[in-house]
């Protein structure tokens, strides 16, 4: 396949996957505890879109169904897409700038920072809202950012933060914070469920405010990452090579660390800690299309959104009305597929 052919292929691949995502969104709308048909669902959505609403037919549709669809299901579906997208692109970027296949969005200790923040807020019953965000979420966000700053400063040598230092500092701080969380949980047994549920990740409390908040954070940061995707490609060749090709390696890494941290802190504050997605989706995409971040990042975003949407749909429908933590679903279905892919490529290489 020639160079131009491949480029065209990527474009059509991305278009196809966007269509798949849209179809998934439309089809998952009809799944859930309340029995709303696909036709009704589409009518309800159409009725809310300014120009298209005259095509909708709202007769025979109960207002309860409309409310469930618009205020519970739709925000949750959109939120899961954005969360999956955010986790996956940060995973892709981290694996790139750290040049480490085991890097995931939580590698700098953000997950334990967020969990500690949430646990403290839960224990102290911080009920107040801040800019429309719950106290727990806000505290989780704050602690995530603090944790990243601490990790970065532990790892820093002069003006640089060498990768090995960052990863080790991330692991160490993570363990330290996790032990604090354990102590908090033991001392507050009556809040145990809440904290545990939060650390397993869930989108069950999704609302439009969260959707809008995450959308506003994610889309611009996604574009910034795309903006730097060629730089990340070249950094993969090694810091020296990248410098000699005219890239300010330290600056690019700092910018990527900063925006990734903000993005992940925002996601975690909304959804709790959802594991696996950020680690695995970039790898799956890499196995499919190679290492070029100009394609890897957008493709990870779309595939991550699809994967998260499917996982969350299963989480809310499989044992309905009981919710399964979505983090359990992501690993349950993602891990075997990943092992299959690994097995397949291993055979190809040998």
């Amino acid at each position: 396949m020639t160079f131009e052919d491949r480029k065209k292929n990527y474009k059509s691949l991305i278009l196809i996957s966007i269509v798949v995502l849209l179809l998934l969104i439309l089809s998952t709308i009809a799944f859930g505890a309340a029995n709303i048909t696909l036709e009704d669902s589409l009518n309800i959505i159409l009725s809310k879109i300014p120009i298209l609403k005259r095509f909708s037919n709202m007769q025979n549709i109960s207002s309860a169904h409309a409310a469930i669809l618009l205020n519970i299901r739709l925000p949750r579906i959109l939120l899961s897409c954005i969360v999956g997208m955010g986790l996956s692109i940060v995973g892709a970027v981290y694996q790139g700038i750290f040049n480490n296949p085991m890097a995931d969005p939580y590698v700098l200790g953000i997950s334990s920072g967020a969990a500690l923040g949430a646990a403290i807020a839960i224990v102290f019953h911080v009920e107040s809202m801040f800019l429309g965000i719950s106290g727990v979420a806000f505290s989780a966000f704050l602690f995530s950012i603090l944790t990243t700053l601490v990790v970065y400063n532990i790892a820093r040598v002069g003006n640089k933060a060498p990768t090995v230092n960052l990863l080790l500092a991330g692991v160490a701080v993570s363990f330290f914070l996790s032990s604090l969380i354990s102590i908090i949980m033991i001392l507050n047994r009556n809040e145990l469920d809440k904290i545990v549920f939060w650390t397993m990740g869930s989108l069950s409390a999704a609302n439009w405010k969260q959707v809008i908040f995450l959308f506003v954070v994610t889309v611009p940061l996604f574009l910034v990452m795309l903006f730097f995707s060629r730089d990340i490609n070249i950094i993969l060749l090694g810091d020296d090579s990248a410098k000699s090709l005219g890239i300010n390696v330290e600056l690019v890494k700092k910018i990527m660390l900063l925006i990734s941290s903000v993005l992940i802190a925002s996601i975690v504050s909304v959804s709790g800690i959802i594991g696996f997605v950020g680690l695995i989706i970039p790898h799956i995409v890499k196995l499919l299309i190679g290492s070029d971040h100009r394609i890897l990042i957008p493709f990870s975003a779309i595939i991550g959104a699809c994967f998260m949407l499917l996982s969350d749909t299963l989480a809310r429908t499989l044992l309905a009305p009981t919710e399964i933590p979505v983090g359990a679903i992501t690993s349950l279905f993602g891990a075997p597929y990943f092992i299959y892919l690994l097995y397949k490529t291993k055979k190809r290489v040998l």
Binding site: F3, R230, N233, L236, L237, L245, G290, S291, D292
Partner: peptide, 12 residues
């Protein structure tokens, strides 16, 4: 890395 040789040269 999974870059083609041409990809790598184009980085130049």
């Amino acid at each position: 890395l999974d870059f083609t040789s041409l990809d790598v040269v184009l980085m130049g």
